[in-house]
């Protein structure tokens, strides 16, 4: 399991709709803000890269000191962004693919408005379990 990992889902209209700190390291107080900041800065790169490839998984697109940003873009242009310090491309890819499945289930819920915050606790538990398994 990675020591630091922060997972964020950004909707197509640039609104973060889900956030989770999934690392095992003891939390530093300012860590959450720092992670958000790095991921936010990486959004521009995602914007440029997303249209150059047909692959959904964009691999590591940015780094900050020893932290790496990996991104997965769905067909609807929802971005899954993971900030991590481990080097485990295969694990991250599987993680993204399974989260994508979960995200589709959320999207199929008629009572969920696309682009709004994901509040489902079931989704949260599942994502954390996947993070433990793959990262």
């Amino acid at each position: 399991m990675a020591t630091t990992a922060c997972f964020i889902i950004v909707s197509r209209n640039e609104i973060p709709i889900y956030e989770a700190e999934v690392g095992s390291a003891a939390k530093r107080e300012d860590a959450a803000q720092l992670h958000q900041f790095i991921l936010h800065a990486a959004l521009d790169i995602v914007q440029d890269l997303a249209w150059t490839t047909s692959a959904m998984f964009l691999k590591a697109i940015d780094r900050f000191n020893d932290l790496v940003v990996s991104v997965y873009v769905t067909a609807g242009h929802t971005r899954f962004m993971l900030l991590h310090d481990s080097r485990n491309d295969d694990g991250i890819k599987s993680f993204f693919q399974e989260v994508h499945e979960l995200y589709i289930k959320i999207l199929l819920n008629p009572l969920y408005l696309p682009g709004s915050r994901i509040t489902s606790s079931h989704f949260d538990t599942k994502v954390r379990a996947l993070a433990r398994k793959y990262l």
Partner: peptide, 10 residues
Amino acid sequence: VDFVELPDTC
């Protein structure tokens, strides 16, 4: 009810 999950508002 496949896929359905009740949000807090409903």
